[in-house]
Design a binder for these strands. Structure first.
Length: 500
DNA sequence: TGAAATGTTGGGGCG
DNA sequence: ACGCCCCAACATTTC
């Protein structure tokens, strides 16, 4: 925060103070505190995005993330142009590239919205010191969270490690959430723009093979798409969210996760929109549904809280006992591959994994089922699942992804008990009773009657034949027996449970 | 934000 | 009519 109150010195060559706004995971114009601060500085504003995808950059965006990023940057540039501005693109190590831009343009001030990943914190802290030392006015802002992790402490002074009290704190202060900022009215542009890469040069989208058809058909990256998604959700699914969110065959969830991850919409905006919707009235019994939805927004906050206070979250189990967990170390590849490609023989698992592959997203209920299956039925380390999700999800988010995998594995803070093992057949029958979801994503099972849609191995030969299924050929038999796998997992857990 | 195993209860079939 | 058994249906405990 050094120099924050200092008046920016005018850059002689430009004739007016020159401010860089560094876009990162806040690819929007409205409710963007850093951008607003830059616009209010009085000088010209240069919006910049830096792609840092060198090999050594930890947790750089995966394939699906890169696809999304392309669309979001394009939308952002369009939106900026409607304000008479534009987006400058640069590629390289983030801190060095930004510092070089400051020197090159003679900027007097730099603004950005904070990130919370351990490597980003370290990088940004060092960069801020470096720029401050050079006399640049640097300010960072909160653009991504309702509350930042260091502002929340339990009664005893430590970080929250349990969700329920964390949520209660948020709920008690639900009316204290600041109103979202509107988009800047104008962004004064410099006489000449700095050099910019062309987005197409970055090759963020796949070409050969082009696996992104399902993504294009499903998503509208960018701030406008985010707002449309929110409005659509508020108008329909929110009113039955409590149970609708558990039906993967329906459009019962918000699908805002990728928009939130990339910062095309902020949690403050979502929070305010839900409150407005409640106060608009005519929503008998909707209040409980809205609260359930807001709890999901706060789960995201909780994940960021965990990542901030426990930076090893993405890599190592928070529960030390799991360091000794006997994960399977032989014949991993075949089972991992079957899981990744949706050929486990359990329809609900395979449907989820194929949905993920096709549209870069998976229904949350099904995420829990497939994660439980990888960890407990296949006894493979949760980090393998975390890595696959990282590469394939358009909403891949370090905090949410890591916290959720640890939660399912039972090794995180406030985690699901390890002995809670999902039965994929029962989960399917309970939440996809008519098989709509399975039929959609596992079309080779589409003709199977509902009675067998979640357990084709129990179907009579005649029924299979009528449905044009040749079990073991057109669709696999289960790669593990549920009952045996369950006992194996419980025995493995028993082995580490006692250890202090 | 489980499922399975085990325990309990009560109606009905039956000798 | 009575006791016994069976077994859903539900509750509780265990993993």
């Amino acid at each position: 925060m050094c120099n924050r109150t200092r008046t920016p010195t005018a850059d002689v060559s430009q004739g007016s103070p020159f401010t860089l706004f560094w876009f990162r995971q806040d690819l929007r114009l409205a409710d963007n505190p850093g951008l607003t601060a830059a616009a209010e500085g009085g000088g010209t504003v240069v919006p910049v995005y830096i792609l840092d995808d060198q090999e050594e950059a930890p947790w750089r965006p995966g394939g699906a993330g890169r696809w999304w990023l392309h669309g979001s940057l394009q939308a952002l540039d369009d939106d900026l142009r409607s304000l008479g501005s534009r987006l400058i693109l640069r590629r390289g190590p983030a801190a060095e590239t930004l510092a070089a831009m400051v020197a090159e343009t003679g900027a007097a001030a730099v603004h950005w919205n904070r990130l919370y990943e351990p490597h980003a914190i370290a990088r940004d802290t060092a960069l801020k010191q470096r720029l401050c030392a050079a006399g640049i006015d640097v300010a960072s802002h909160n653009g991504s969270l309702l509350r930042e992790p260091w502002t929340l402490r339990t009664q005893s002074g430590g970080p929250f490690k349990v969700y329920t009290p964390f949520w209660k704190r948020y709920w008690a202060q639900r009316n204290a959430v600041p109103a979202p900022l509107s988009r800047p009215g104008s962004l004064p542009r410099p006489d000449t723009w700095p050099r910019s890469d062309r987005l197409a040069e970055w090759r963020l989208r796949p070409i050969r093979p082009d696996w992104a058809g399902g993504l294009r058909a499903t998503w509208i990256p960018g701030e406008t798409g985010a707002r449309q998604r929110l409005d659509a959700f508020l108008g329909s699914a929110l009113g039955r969210y409590g149970d609708g969110r558990d039906r993967p065959g329906t459009d019962g969830t918000s699908r805002l996760s990728p928009h939130l991850h990339w910062g095309e919409i902020s949690p403050r905006q979502v929070w305010a929109a839900v409150q407005d919707r409640l106060q608009a009235g005519g929503l008998d019994g909707c209040e409980a549904h809205a609260e359930t939805f807001l709890k999901e927004i706060v789960w995201r906050e909780f994940s960021y809280n965990l990542l901030y206070h426990f930076p090893s979250l993405p890599d190592a189990p928070l529960d030390d006992r799991f360091a000794a967990f006997p994960w399977r170390d032989t014949d991993r590849d075949a089972d991992l591959g079957a899981w990744q490609h949706g050929r486990t023989g359990y329809p609900i698992v395979d449907a989820g994994m194929r949905q993920l592959w096709h549209i870069g997203w998976m229904h949350n209920r099904v995420r829990m089922i497939v994660a439980s299956f990888l960890i407990k039925h296949l006894l493979l380390p949760w980090q393998l699942g975390e890595a696959w999700f990282w590469d394939t999800l358009v909403d891949a988010d370090l905090a949410s992804n890591a916290a959720s995998w640890q939660w399912v594995a039972g090794c995180g803070a406030d985690a699901a008990p390890y002995f809670r093992i999902f039965n994929p057949t029962l989960q399917g029958e309970k939440f996809d009773p008519d098989g709509t979801y399975v039929r959609r994503w596992v079309p080779e099972l589409a003709k199977l009657p509902a009675k067998y849609i979640h357990k084709p191995w129990e179907a009579p030969a005649r029924t299979l034949a009528d449905a044009a299924i040749d079990l073991g050929r057109t669709y696999p038999r289960p790669i593990v027996d549920h009952r045996a796998a369950r006992h194996r997992a419980l025995a493995a857990y028993e082995g580490i449970k006692k250890a202090a």
